[in-house]
């Protein structure tokens, strides 16, 4: 290899390595910090949610809803629509959860009834301990 060719190859190599060495720091720099709230527990008094009623809570930094479904008992679901992230609202009269953004609807178990949501609303573990509802 001639000297000019060797210098060209060397310059290309070091130039590429120098630029590539910025890739990882950049990806890390832009990568958001992960959420600090995980596996937290939310405690509610049982009388706060009568039959047919609901309560909006914040669970792991995200909005969720606890519904006392007539005949089926308490259920806790994420309020974040699985389509594009809007918050679903509880339609008590029609017994369903409706997303106002793209008209996705879910039943009170979180299953998709209609519209574009790709999957059910995530269920959040819940148990009743005496007069308390423990979510999470």
């Amino acid at each position: 290899m001639r000297r000019r060719g060797f210098l060209k190859a060397l310059l290309t190599f070091f130039g590429t390595v120098s630029l590539a060495s910025f890739a990882y720091p950049l990806v890390r720099f832009f990568a958001p910090p992960s959420s600090s709230a995980v596996n937290e527990k939310v405690v509610l008094a049982k009388q706060e949610i009568p039959i047919g009623g609901s309560k909006v809570i914040v669970f792991n930094d995200k909005p969720a809803i606890v519904i006392n479904v007539p005949g089926k008992g308490l259920i806790a679901l994420s309020k974040v629509c699985t389509h594009l992230g809007c918050l679903v609202e509880y339609d008590k009269d029609k017994n369903r959860l409706v997303c106002p953004c793209h008209a996705g609807t879910y039943d009170l178990q979180g299953n998709v009834i209609s519209g574009p949501p790709p999957k059910s609303l995530p269920k959040i573990p819940l148990r009743v301990d005496g007069e308390q509802i423990i979510i999470g």
Binding site: V58, L84, C86, L87, E89, P100, H102, A103, G115
Partner: peptide
Amino acid sequence: FRTPETIRPEWYFLAPYQMLK
């Protein structure tokens, strides 16, 4: 913690919005 009942994008995004719907 509350999505408005009616939410519409700007006029120039209405067509893709409806398509997604």
